[in-house]
Write a protein that binds this DNA or RNA. Structure first.
Lengths: 198, 198, 198, 198
DNA sequence: TATGAATGAGTATTCATTCAT
DNA sequence: CATGAATGAATACTCATTCAT
């Protein structure tokens, strides 16, 4: 089990990264926000970038576990998609800081291979999850088979991300989760066969 | 007419920003890439950030003019949407560097109000363009009227952006423009009424 | 109590400013002279100008306290003037570097309001001290009453400063304090009534 | 005869140096003030410092010629001293910018030997002029013979300079020349024998 | 002569990282 | 484990000077 301070620093970093962006944030600011000394950070993290890396890997893992659960609980493909999107929006609505960091930092080109890889892996996992759902939908006859799967994955992911992004830029002032159903509806019309699941 | 050096520097900056990101890029690197002295940059730009600002405002204008033309040339709403998306993909395919900069830097949280505003304005214009097309489509009976317009705009924009983003991350190794038709098809199924335009 | 390093840097700065002048001195030179890293300076001073400001305010205070003491210890006005001038010359003779900095930097036109104000305030205090002595001298009948006080203050201050200045330019090679008595004599003839105090 | 532009630049430099000080002034500012191109300055001056050097040597010469004239026109030593001081104050009152530059830049420590020498030479000449007057006064019996001549020179020079300096700092808002008589009176009491010249 | 665009050396300042306590 | 003072490499920006026109 990770120490108390570790989580303290992670949370502080998310807060400050969300407000100012990674490069605009100093390690000293994170330390102050976390209420620890500058040097203490280096007891838990290799360097500044490692903090961001851990945010992506540690927190992403937490969140993805919820996604998998949500998808597993649903039966049919459409409901799985709905569950996925809803829990995605829920997770980000619950932690807007994290949402901001994900949205704004994941697109940044970076030198560190470790970080790039981490981010790419997360995206890939997410797309794979969508891919599995769509394939299941195709098997069930709820989703069109004449679709380039790679495009469909991005189509769904892009739509969800843009909805989140708009919400983030709007300052998180409205209910993000309420966008889930209309969004799924749009997606299903795009990729679905029209066959009803009930 | 802007001076020769101005464009030289803009192009150099796009190249280097695309490769390393804004914060990882030094002014000296831009100067070297442009083949000018460090100080020369400050004859044409107020500071480093101003270069990015100019890229967004100057180059975005160029590109947006093409978008408006493309949309204007088409007759029916679906064709307008197809034109818009195709010219979007074309523009970014032709200048991958610019695409990378747009995709990765536009999401960054930043202090400068000027830059944030510039970026927000571009996004808004784009969404408005989509909005107009959809409204026209609703009038023509090609697009559903039971849609929350704000969501539709983001839905389309998000899908396009994610397609570009994936292409960017893949190193631009395949034909981006060929994604236009399937993408429009997906979007139209999502937002269309099913009525055929021919 | 101020840290060790603070004084180390102040002394180093005085030395280097005295040798090369404020604008010709780099922060790196001060750091090297003080035996600290460049960055360390910014732990104790806001910026380069702040060092000069602190020299004026911190060291001036030290010295002025001595002046007030010296003046207070003397009884009659002429002796007070003699004490003031002697301790002034003594102080500057003891720290020629400081003398040089005071003489050469205090006349410079500068943007910083804080610095200008600091310098003006010191000059004013000094002139006020002289003013008080002269007024006491007038009461005692040792000094002429037909004098424009503002002129007298400057007359005395100017004479003392020029004597110091010449000594500074001469490289501090002779005994500055020995000029005190003849200087006071000259001043007293100029402003005195001729009445003897003994 | 020096070209038009030469004087134009000299005057412009005096104006800007007076306002901002030598080190705070850029060559471009001088050029703008003079209404010439940056490069033009280097047709008339070797470098930035040369401008200041020329101000001291060219303008000082002009002024000193007036001083010598004024001193020559007077008969007796006291009147010579009065003439000198009055023309000094007059000259500076007429060109406050020049006064500021003289007062503030002449004390600065500088690397350039040429400039330091120029400034020292001017001061020396001035002190010599005073010296000659005092010696004449001693011959005539108007001035005390028990004075260390080096001190007397500085005594007078210092008093005059401080009076000018105060006027400069006050923004030149009062009549400087009117200080001449009281100032001479003070000096004469200090150094004179009391014998009346009429 | 005159120009002003271009140069690039020079510098104040920041900040990730270390390490003695 | 925890601290935070100290470090010094890194970098945006300025400006005196040059030179092709």
């Amino acid at each position: 089990m990770k120490s108390d301070k570790y989580h303290l620093i992670i949370e502080a970093a998310i807060t400050v990264f969300a407000k100012q962006g990674y490069y605009q944030t100093t390690v000293a600011q994170i330390a102050r926000e976390a209420g620890v000394a500058d040097g203490t950070i280096y007891l838990y993290f290799k360097n500044k970038e490692d903090i961001l890396l851990q945010i992506f890997s540690f927190r992403a893992k937490q969140i993805f576990d919820r996604f998998y659960e949500a998808v597993a609980e649903a039966e049919l493909s459409e409901e799985k998609l709905r569950s996925l999107i809803r829990s995605h929006l829920e997770a980000f609505q619950q932690d807007r800081g994290l949402a901001v960091v994900f949205q704004s930092e994941s697109r940044q080109v970076r030198k560190s291979d470790a970080l790039t890889e981490q981010i790419n892996q997360i995206s890939k996992q997410y797309r794979n999850l969508i891919g599995e759902i769509v394939e299941k939908g195709q098997d069930e006859g709820f989703m069109r088979k004449d679709l380039y799967l790679g495009l469909v994955k991005r189509f769904v992911l892009g739509a969800v991300e843009e909805v989140i992004n708009t919400w983030v830029l709007a300052g998180g002032r409205y209910d993000l989760v309420s966008m889930a159903d209309p969004l799924v509806d749009l997606c299903m019309r795009g990729i679905g066969t029209g066959k009803k699941s009930t």
